[in-house]
Design a protein around this nucleic acid. Structure first.
Lengths: 112, 112
DNA sequence: AAGCTATTCAACCGAGTGGTTGACAAGGAC
DNA sequence: GTCCTTGTCAACCACTCGGTTGAATAGCTT
């Protein structure tokens, strides 16, 4: 959808990833592009429900669609997961130092 | 809360991260632990709303609380972001090959 | 054109979200 | 004990979510 602030992008990406059906859809698209009904097949929900999930993923720009003949071909846009990964990367430095004492070693560290 | 499947853990983590106020709270806790009202101060919502956000973050085990005198001290548990980061790491290999042709290079690659 | 296939749309439903306000509990300070 | 501060709880509200079913659209095929 048109244009989004950084925060809104992260909102839509993390929201898209917060549902197991949608994460499963993305996993399925990693190997190759698929039609909508092919995507829906392994999931125990209606085709309309899958269509809604695809709209959520599309709003987050994690997939792209292309009409090809009678089918709607869906393709992963994995590069757009990057903002989420970068947001998380900020916390890497805290993984090994959960102890409160050590947590003060960083000083002039700030952003966003 | 008690015990969660991997999928449920990712659900709660990604859901917790899908709100800008909650992400901002986590950022604020990166430098040091804080009391609830100290957390609430920079956010233009009621204290009760912040308290709800903290419950969501606590359910995802991204923070921990400790009663210290009159205050409730909140501390980041950054290590529990790891499942999210690992889930995303799977897609790193697709960033530089959005082209459909190249996307077929991987073959026996499957998991979860 | 008629029909089949693939997909979306619209309306509805129950549950959850993020916010509010006001009452309540928990723990110093006086 | 009484007051003040800190924080949660409960009830409410408008909105969103994930799901359904049934009708509508888009595009082959014949």
């Amino acid at each position: 959808m048109v244009k989004q602030s950084n925060a809104a992008r992260l909102d839509s990406i993390f929201h898209a990833l917060s549902d197991p059906t949608r994460r499963s859809i993305l996993r399925g698209l990693a190997s190759r592009e698929k039609s909508v009904s092919e995507i829906a097949k392994p999931h125990p929900v209606s085709l309309a429900a899958v269509s809604k999930h695809l709209k959520v993923l599309e709003a987050a720009e994690l997939i792209a669609r292309e009409r090809r003949g009678n089918f709607q071909i869906v393709r992963l846009k994995a590069a757009n997961l990057r903002p989420a990964e970068q947001w998380l990367a900020y916390y890497d430095k805290f993984w090994n130092q959960q102890l409160d004492a050590l947590q003060t070693y960083m000083e002039g560290d700030q952003d966003d």
